[in-house]
């Protein structure tokens, strides 16, 4: 069974499973104490308490004490927490940044410091309201009961007012969307008693809890033919995050699925006469937000936004359904008897010259006889 569809076949909200998105991913670090090219797999390998494996920075003897770790998830994820397991004492000041565009731009996610204003020019524990839900907070590093195995967990939605109504909060959906995470250690916890100060940062695990972002239109992510992680899109959607409608499914605008409404993309109704269509917002609004698809290049001599009537010069053959490729028949107006080449699109009646009759205007009406003039082919019998 497909989780994106009910047993009766109707579309329903579906999401990939909750995972540690960092597991097995490569971490780039600016400082390490050991081999330079080990890819720091100890950070994102299986974290076993019985066999703790750590990454450690080089010894830092003087300022600056900056060390950066960058984790690429390779795909947009919606993350709810970042958890860092330290093998050393937790740093005094550190920042977490996120990127939503594969590392091209970065925005701050969270700061920790005993001196928020001095180190990061941020207030300590600023108030988060509905007006600034995308603002990073700065706070003191939380204390751990056991400093030898300290864990720091940053919950991305914690304290943000719309978290209880996440499905209808585009702001928070955007806030927790990431492709890359960067952790910058800026200041270790200083020990004034040390005669020759030397500091280092060490971590055993870097976890990122979240779901592959598919906007409610896929229940899993997979590798595409180029090896890139993409959603396995359903509901007539496509794109790496199921973020647009498939071609020919533009009858209503793309929307994220919600538990109440799968918001699947619907095909345009072109009566089998067009392969392409476009979305028109004006028509969509006029229809009461039901249908906005406009068919393009109607074939088989049809016309209209749904290819639902015959184009000029053709009339509807009512013996066939509109979906039939021969539903429209050429008018066949008489070149002399008819006033033009077009006919009534439903009856096929051509517009006849005076005194001419017949569906195609090919006969003189009763009381008329054929003349020699092509301008007035039928004249009244004297």
């Amino acid at each position: 069974t497909d989780p994106c569809y009910s047993e009766s076949g109707s579309a329903r909200y579906c999401i990939p499973e909750f995972v540690n998105a960092a597991f097995g991913q490569e971490v780039t670090v600016s400082s390490t104490c050991g081999r330079r090219n080990c890819e720091h797999t100890y950070l994102t390998d299986l974290n076993s308490a019985q066999n703790l494996t750590c990454w450690q920075s080089e010894m830092l003897r003087s300022m600056p004490f900056n060390v950066t770790l960058t984790l690429s998830l390779g795909k947009k994820f919606e993350i709810t927490y970042i958890s860092l397991h330290f093998c050393s004492e937790k740093p005094d000041s550190m920042a977490i940044y996120k990127s939503m565009d594969y590392g091209r731009s970065w925005t701050p996610f969270q700061f920790y410091s005993s001196q928020c204003r001095r180190v990061y020019d941020r207030p300590n524990r600023a108030e988060i309201t509905k007006l600034n839900e995308q603002e990073p907070l700065c706070m003191e590093m939380p204390n751990s009961a056991d400093s030898s195995n300290a864990i720091l967990v940053f919950s991305t939605l914690d304290g943000r007012p719309s978290r209880t109504n996440f499905v209808s909060s585009p702001v928070l959906q955007d806030w927790i969307t990431v492709t890359d995470i960067r952790v910058t250690f800026n200041r270790p916890k200083m020990n004034k008693d040390m005669r020759e100060p030397a500091y280092f940062y060490a971590m055993s695990d870097f976890q990122v809890g979240g779901r592959c972002k598919c906007n409610g239109h896929a229940h899993r992510c997979m590798r595409d033919k180029d090896g890139m992680m993409v959603c396995d899109c359903k509901h007539n959607t496509e794109g790496s995050e199921c973020d647009r409608c498939k071609p020919f499914h533009y009858d209503r605008p793309w929307q994220r699925a919600t538990p109440k409404d799968a918001n699947e993309c619907l095909p345009c109704n072109c009566n089998l006469h067009a392969r392409r269509c476009r979305f028109n917002m004006e028509l969509y609004k006029l229809s009461g937000r039901k249908s906005g698809g406009v068919c393009m290049n109607c074939r088989h001599n049809t016309a209209g936004r749904h290819c639902h009537y015959c184009k000029e010069g053709y009339y509807r053959d009512m013996s066939r359904p509109i979906t039939h490729r021969k539903a429209c028949t050429a008018c066949d107006c008489h070149p002399v008897g008819a006033a033009g080449k077009t006919c009534n699109q439903t009856s096929g009646q051509c517009q006849c010259k005076d005194g001419v009759t017949g569906l195609t205007c090919n006969r003189c009406a009763k009381g008329y006889q054929q003349s020699r003039s092509p301008v007035a082919p039928c004249i009244k019998i004297p």
């Binding site: 009759t357 009406a365 009763k366 054929q370 003039s373 092509p374 301008v375």
Partner: peptide, 24 residues
């Protein structure tokens, strides 16, 4: 009563050559 169809051969196109259908 079945009305006869227009006989194209009866038309005089002398003054209307530009209107004349190709097949007449």
């Amino acid at each position: 009563e079945v009305l006869p169809t227009l006989d194209m051969a009866l038309f005089d196109w002398t003054d209307y050559e530009d209107m004349r259908p190709e097949d007449s």
